[in-house]
Design a protein around this nucleic acid. Structure first.
Length: 267
DNA sequence: ATGTCCGATGATATCGGA
């Protein structure tokens, strides 16, 4: 019989839209929010340009995956960062390149992945097919890792609004990506391998949007979407004590167009 | 005025991407 130990961790995910543009903001947020693990997306820098020193000074070790101006993911942790896996198994390529969109690591009690799902651009664009193929590859990687008896989570920018309630106005997205049936089916297929979504609470208004376009005053008008998601094993989900979107991090000049998703778990 | 912002580039304005 094994002993049960209570382990409390705060995990988070944030599409930062260029980490080198926002190092100081990120460090201030880390000091304020105190996450134990943070999954980052759209770091937009090579691993050797990643600002690991100021993050280390803030108390976090990090592992970054990036090719340059586009995409890029990373994981920060103050509870260990081991067994790092760079990329999905047999990930599809875009224009001959295996992009930096997925990073897995074991952090404390959790096996955790940071993902930046392809945007898709339009329903007719080859990038949309790439998005669906990439999501199916994520499903296969998740299924393969879930055979181990470890608590497991994937956090990131999925570029999918799971339901019509996850966009400010369904009609505004008619014929667009992020809300289409094949994208939502691909998300459901990932959940069917043994994952369940952690639903955050909003800090303001009725719905926990995580992204607001920079244009057309979308943030002050709360014209947002909930596309940054967390899928976990059921036992992690059942151990969640709080989950929220920190929309305060979206306020003001010089912020990312995404807000962080924060999840507290008592395992 | 897409009421914007990012990195990259025959850079000092323009472009693709989001």
């Amino acid at each position: 019989m094994r002993s049960i130990s209570l382990e409390s961790v705060r995990i988070a995910s944030w599409n930062v839209n260029s980490i080198n543009r926002r190092v100081e903001l990120l460090v201030r947020w880390l000091e304020d929010a105190q996450p134990d693990v943070l999954c980052l997306q759209e770091t937009k820098c090579r691993a050797d340009d990643f600002p690991s020193m100021p993050l280390l000074a803030a108390g976090y070790e990090s592992h970054a995956l990036g090719l340059g101006a586009w995409n890029g993911v990373a994981i920060l942790s103050r509870v260990g960062l081991a067994n790092v896996t760079e990329g999905l198994t047999d990930a599809p390529q875009w224009e001959g390149v295996t992009e930096a969109r997925a990073l897995g690591a074991t952090c404390g009690p959790l096996r955790i992945w940071s993902v930046y799902v392809p945007n898709g651009r339009t329903l007719e664009h080859p990038h949309y097919d790439y998005k669906l193929e990439w999501l199916d590859t994520l499903r296969r990687t998740a299924a393969a890792e879930l055979t181990s008896e470890r608590e497991w989570a994937v956090l990131g920018d999925f570029n999918i609004a799971p339901t019509d309630d996850d966009v400010y106005d369904r009609a505004a997205y008619e014929g667009s990506t992020h809300v289409s049936v094949p994208e939502r089916d691909a998300l459901s297929a990932i959940e069917k391998v043994g994952l369940t979504e952690v639903m955050p609470r909003p800090l303001k208004y009725d719905r926990p949007f995580t992204y607001w376009d920079y244009r057309q005053l979308a943030f002050p008008k709360n014209r947002g979407m909930r596309i940054d998601l967390a899928l976990t094993t059921p036992s992690v989900r059942d151990a969640v004590t709080d989950a929220y979107v920190d929309r305060n991090a979206r306020k003001g000049k010089g912020t990312s167009d995404h807000a962080p998703l924060v999840i507290d778990v008592d395992l």
